[in-house]
Simulated scan of single mutants.
Amino acid sequence: MRVVETERLILHKLTVEDSEFILALLNDPLWLRFIGDKGVRTLDDARDYILKNLVAMYERLGFGLYLTELKGSGVSIGICGLIKRDSLEDVDLGFAFLQEFRGKGYAYESASAVMEYGRSSFGLSRIVAIASPDNFDSAKLLEKLGFRFEKMVKLADDCESVSLFASNV
């Protein structure tokens, strides 16, 4: 189901049919470095991840991370969407793209559209985003989107601190 459309992209809810893509994305070296190892190693793991994390959030909140595809070709290039983590007060913006689609403006294009979708469909007046302190590309993108660094936070007691950015929309 199409959720957001931009000039070059279509974003829609993920389903178990997207398991191959999720398996590839969650094992991308930059995903593992900056987001973390989710333990997804097989197609069955990917299906479980989609159902227990992504589909469950759609059902619970009405939003989540969306598959981002190139308009016309339908090639899956990444994910972008809104997440509600138990450890954060606000809804946060999340995004990740396969290596060959980075640096082409797709993350900015999809994130801008997702933020507008969050404002118009869910009445969000504040959206946050987190990034590893050494993820300079994500920090640069967040600043371009209008986010400002707010503070360092820990998402869990046993986790490293991450940079929290905020956008009052």
Rank of each mutant, 00 (worst) to 15 (best):
L61H: 11
R85S: 12
I130Q: 13
V55Y: 05
D45I: 01
L67D: 00
C80A: 09
G78V: 06
I50T: 03
K13Y: 08
K13C: 11
E17S: 10
T15N: 12
A46V: 01
V55M: 01
S161G: 14
D45T: 02
L70P: 03
D158A: 12
L67V: 05
E143A: 11
L142E: 07
V91P: 06
G123W: 03
A111H: 07
K13D: 09
K140G: 05
N135Q: 07
S138E: 07
L141F: 14
F101I: 06
I10E: 14
L32N: 01
F165G: 00
L93E: 11
L54K: 02
D158H: 13
M57I: 05
S132G: 08
I77L: 09
T68P: 02
L70N: 03
F101Y: 15
I22R: 01
V55K: 01
T6W: 03
I130Y: 07
D18K: 04
A156M: 06
N168R: 15
G103S: 10
L124H: 12
R85D: 13
S112N: 15
E160A: 12
A24W: 05
L164G: 14
G81N: 10
D45E: 02
Y106F: 15
V91M: 02
Y58H: 00
R47M: 02
D86W: 05
